[in-house]
Design a binder for these strands. Structure first.
Length: 268
DNA sequence: ATGACTGCTAACAGCAGA
């Protein structure tokens, strides 16, 4: 099973690019963020024609998340994080796909920090952490996938000193990510590439892509059941080089079949 | 420290993004 995450930055404006990537990469599950489309303007039929069922939570102008599943209809289990019913921003949707529970998230950016937007980011992550703890208690394969808007370490940013006080890299944000990974969630790309500089975002300014001035913001966190099945992980950087590209590139993991754990000796 | 790009909305400029 191949699971990918892609901050598409406008699902309608970039639909041709997205459909090309789906045909080439053939992910089984895709978590999309920044749809920037209201619920009724999500291009469901185009995905259906491409072989993907979908669930989505749209919003006018900003935010918006979706889960696509190849040859299947995701079974929605939740939309929105618990804990702040007055929060109307579309940033979380969760669904079961072929027995795997997928949480698709788009975390708040949080800039400028400090300030009310950063406070909202921290509250949102407190809610995510609480929900993640509940998911960890389940006896099921679970992945928390999406744009976390957190640069986890200095290895994940082209120039750490320039980002010290930014909401993406401030201590409070990095601590959230450390707590999630310490509590049992595996950062899949970093697990398989412990030393490599991996980026998933290059901003549109200052020729960031041309200079490879990137950030790693998009993460695939696996619970222990799925981490045991992790086989490969990467970033489809070529997508960022295309005309009319999103400022993010897709990140993905390949998982082995259930019961195919290879790190432990298996019975003959 | 600032501004540079881009999409969306629809006001042909402003907001948000990261």
């Amino acid at each position: 099973m191949k699971i990918a995450t892609f901050n598409i930055n406008g699902v309608n404006g970039r639909l041709p690019l997205l459909l090309r990537w789906l045909a080439e990469a053939e992910p089984d599950v895709v978590c999309l963020q920044e749809l920037k489309a209201p619920q009724e303007r999500f291009p469901e039929s185009a995905f259906r024609e491409a072989g993907y069922g979908a669930v989505w939570q749209g919003q006018k102008s900003w935010n918006g998340v979706a889960i696509l599943a190849r040859g299947a209809d995701p079974v929605e289990t939740r939309r929105g994080l618990p804990g702040e019913p007055e929060d109307v921003q579309s940033r979380y949707i969760e669904a079961a796909v072929n027995g795997v529970l997928i949480g698709c998230l788009y975390a708040p950016n949080g800039n400028p920090a400090p300030g009310p937007k950063f406070d909202y980011k921290l509250r949102w992550f407190a809610r995510l952490k609480a929900h993640a703890a509940e998911l960890l208690a389940l006896d099921a394969p679970v992945a928390l996938v999406g744009d976390y808007n957190i640069i986890p370490t200095e290895l994940d940013v082209y120039k750490p000193e320039r980002w010290t006080d930014d909401a993406l890299f401030r201590r409070e944000a990095r601590v959230v990510f450390e707590e999630l990974t310490a509590s049992g969630w595996s950062d899949a790309l970093r697990t398989l590439h412990p030393e490599e500089r991996l980026y998933t975002f290059w901003d549109y300014f200052r020729n960031a892509w041309g200079r490879d001035a990137g950030l790693r913001l998009d993460h695939i966190l696996l619970n222990p059941t799925l981490a045991a099945r992790l086989r490969a992980a990467g970033v489809d950087r070529a997508v960022r080089a295309q005309e009319k590209a999103s400022d993010h590139a897709p990140a993905w993991v390949e998982l082995g079949r259930a019961g195919s754990r290879r790190s432990k000796a298996s019975k003959p």
